[in-house]
Design a protein around this nucleic acid. Sequence first.
DNA 1: TCAGAGCTATACTGATCGGTAAAGTTGACG
DNA 2: CGTCAACTTTACCGATCAGTATAGCTCTGA
Lengths: 181, 181
Amino acid sequence: MTPAARRIVAAAEELFYHRGITAVGVDLIAEHSGVTKRTLYNQFGSKDQVVAAYLAGRDRRWRALVRATIDSCGDSLEAVTAPLVALQDWSAASTRGCAFLNALAELPDPAHPAHRVAADQKLWLRALFEELAGLAGCSDPATLAVRLLVLHEGVLATRLLGIDTLAESTALARSLVRAQT
Amino acid sequence: MTPAARRIVAAAEELFYHRGITAVGVDLIAEHSGVTKRTLYNQFGSKDQVVAAYLAGRDRRWRALVRATIDSCGDSLEAVTAPLVALQDWSAASTRGCAFLNALAELPDPAHPAHRVAADQKLWLRALFEELAGLAGCSDPATLAVRLLVLHEGVLATRLLGIDTLAESTALARSLVRAQT
DNA sequence: TCAGAGCTATACTGATCGGTAAAGTTGACG
DNA sequence: CGTCAACTTTACCGATCAGTATAGCTCTGA
């Protein structure tokens, strides 16, 4: 990625997340990144590709944070709920919920490149939950993974509503893990 | 509501839910409802008001369904998870998730009339869970209500991802209720 | 030295956006 | 009969949409 491309994605992230994807035009992105619209199209080809790059970058950072949180856990039982703990650091001040869910809500077309990024991230999370549950010796990793995923998405959805359910959900998640050991 | 207004809201619901609110213009709504744009503005004054009417109508129908589901429950313990059961009938075929969450995702401005409608619906649901839990004799209705709300929103969020978690979440919800009695 | 990549600047396209103007039609009710 | 509200028709407004055209600048690397 060229310096200009990086600035474009950074500006797009700021604007898309806080104002919505459809509501933000390419002119605004170009202006906020101090770049010409020509450069934006030379680098990305279309607005849709900028959207995909925005989500892909966010996904990369999120996964890194989750992995770091897992690594910082003492035992494997605690690690199962690490993604919930990571959510505490992840945009704690933000009241705009999950960027990926929001993108899916805004872009109904399944062919949009953003769909793959968003769906992949959630499937990855479910698989991760299942893997962690297996390592911790849980009796039914697949079922537990679905339950933890629902809690995770529920926290993000209620955050969009201005209701903070993270602490409560994390506590519930821990008890679900404990019940399977 | 005049006949034309009803047709406008019906067309708006169909279009907004499946294509997104920002992506649908007033011209398209007028065309699909067989009504002039002038009539639309005479009836609603602005696109934002059409959005609010769309969500308000959906909310009314959703609450009616939930109440009916509660009434059809045999005992008060079963009634606590009635909103989850209602979700089974509610747009089961739809893969576009929750209209209210989607609206909040698309419209960041808290001053938008849609925000009140969406937030009210979720706060109503939480209060309903709490009331039902109280009637069923649960030990901690407030905590249980938050947990059930998270599960509810989690089901809707994962539905947007194409993952069906309703059965699993309903089972979990029932066990949470049982644990409090 | 010179070619090419990265980038800027300005201007433009046709389409669509939310919203309005002005004037006319229809049917129900007093 | 007359009136009023609901609704229609056509045309328009300035702004913004995603995307393109053309031309020129600057730095790097062979």
